[in-house]
């Protein structure tokens, strides 16, 4: 069975990168290799989320599939990817 890989876009805008987003780029080290094979990771230009800053939300932002997530750290990243793959 061939399943479509899920697109994971990590925001590489300066605001995200300096506030913990850089940590996510180590996904090769902290994410299960089995999970890694099922996703396609891309570092992308500023997603613009920080500009339309909603109160209480802060960088780093990650887009998994169509869904946008704020304040993503390594633990949350793993969890979100598992959720997206199970859905």
């Amino acid at each position: 069975m061939v399943t479509q890989k899920i697109m994971v876009r990590i925001c590489m805008g300066t605001a995200c990168f300096v506030q913990g987003g850089a940590d996510l780029l180590l996904y090769g080290d902290f994410l299960d290799s089995e999970l890694q094979q099922r996703i396609e990771v891309e570092g992308v230009s500023c997603l613009g989320c920080c500009k339309e800053h909603q109160r209480g939300l802060r960088p780093p932002y990650v887009q998994i599939g169509e869904q946008l997530h704020a304040e993503v750290d390594q633990t949350k990243f793993i969890l979100l990817i598992k959720e997206a793959l199970d859905a």
Partner: peptide, 14 residues
């Protein structure tokens, strides 16, 4: 410097 870039809305990668 990171704060300066944020304050001036400068995106290094762009």
């Amino acid at each position: 410097l990171a704060a300066l870039f944020l304050a001036k809305d400068i995106d290094v990668r762009e």
